Simulated scan of single mutants.
Amino acid sequence: MNLDNALGVDRAPHGSSDDPNVLDFSANTNPRVPEGVEAVYRDAFAESRSYPSEPPADYRDAAAEYVDCQPDEVIPTPGGLAAIRSVVDLAVSPGDSVLVPFPSFGEYAREVPLQGGEPAFVPHDAVLDIDRSDLAEHALAIVCNPNNPTGETYDSAALDTFAARCRDVDTPLLVDEAFLGFTDQPSLAGTPGVVVARSLTKLFGLPGLRSGFAVTTGEYGEALAAARRPWNVSGPALATGAYCLRQTEFVAETRERVRTERPRLRDALSEQFDVRPSDAPFLLCDVGDRDVDRILEYARERGLALRDARTFRGLDSHIRVAVRLPAENDHLIEVLGDV
């Protein structure tokens, strides 16, 4: 990254509202947190008068057990986005091409130009079809699984095959698994040639904690470990993160709730909009010829924040809504039913 690159890149838009009087359907974070997490965070405050342990062994152990990899393959980061930036920083040089899916998380297209690279946009549902000769032209390939904002997961076998194809041509593959914890699909963590980025923001409902990690092997594992700043994740974030990653019952309950509520919400909203199938804790809705701004304003006036999905590349008549608690989803259905 250099001055000229940074000056030439805009901020990427995101969902979320900090208005306490608004029910936030624009951010896809869990409306619940694990029981006992606040006490863990408070207890960790006393440790903040000294530097966190280095390396943070307990956090790495918890993360490794959670995604089924080796602890020394875990690189702690202050959120999943920090893991993404670290990988792009290592892989991309000025003038390099990077395979970027669309519509997908907007930060990919922001991080690549920050390093002087050029995003090569490919439809998200066609990424895994890229052949070896085309892959060899890219310094990095990116996949979001499940994809944000469309919500679908990739077939595990097809994703494994794609990872092998990337490996064959020495193109590293970055897989953003920010929402994979809401599904039963196994992580690609520990797969040679693959860097996985994980976040605790979404599944554990703690976006302000800024805790995540990368998982990788081989030379990228060595490079990420060497490049990681010491004490890059705070002591309270490490302690709270390790605690959350071990809350298997909370994870199972969250998955079941989302699995139950998502089709119910989709069926209800489908009476008004064209709603895509999803494996994630959110739904993408095409509102057709309705005025998106008016829908967003109408919902806001009734205390609901929705995500303007027109900010995603390739979408021009869409909103995205999170799958929240049953009573909250009922309120969303009621409000949007009157649009």
Rank of each mutant, 00 (worst) to 15 (best):
G8Y: 00
V9N: 01
H14M: 10
V22I: 15
S26L: 07
A27K: 07
A27N: 05
E38I: 09
R42D: 13
A44G: 04
R49K: 03
Y51D: 15
P55I: 01
P55Y: 01
V67R: 11
T77C: 12
V88K: 01
V88H: 02
A91V: 13
S97Y: 10
V100K: 01
P101Y: 04
F102N: 02
P103Y: 02
E111Q: 12
V112D: 04
V112Q: 04
G116W: 00
E118D: 13
D131F: 08
D134K: 05
T150R: 03
D155Q: 02
F162K: 08
E177Y: 06
E177A: 13
A178H: 15
S187E: 06
T191K: 09
S199Y: 14
L200I: 10
K202I: 00
P207H: 13
P207E: 14
A214W: 03
T216V: 06
G218Q: 01
E222Q: 11
A225P: 05
N232H: 11
G241D: 03
L245E: 02
F250V: 09
T254Q: 09
R264M: 14
Q272Y: 00
F273Q: 03
D274I: 09
A280D: 08
L284H: 08
V287H: 00
I295P: 04
E297G: 06
A299C: 08
A299S: 09
R300T: 10
R302F: 03
L304T: 06
A305L: 10
R310S: 09
R310W: 10
F312C: 13
R313Q: 14
H318G: 04
I319Y: 02
L325E: 15
E328L: 05
L332P: 04
G337C: 04
V339T: 15
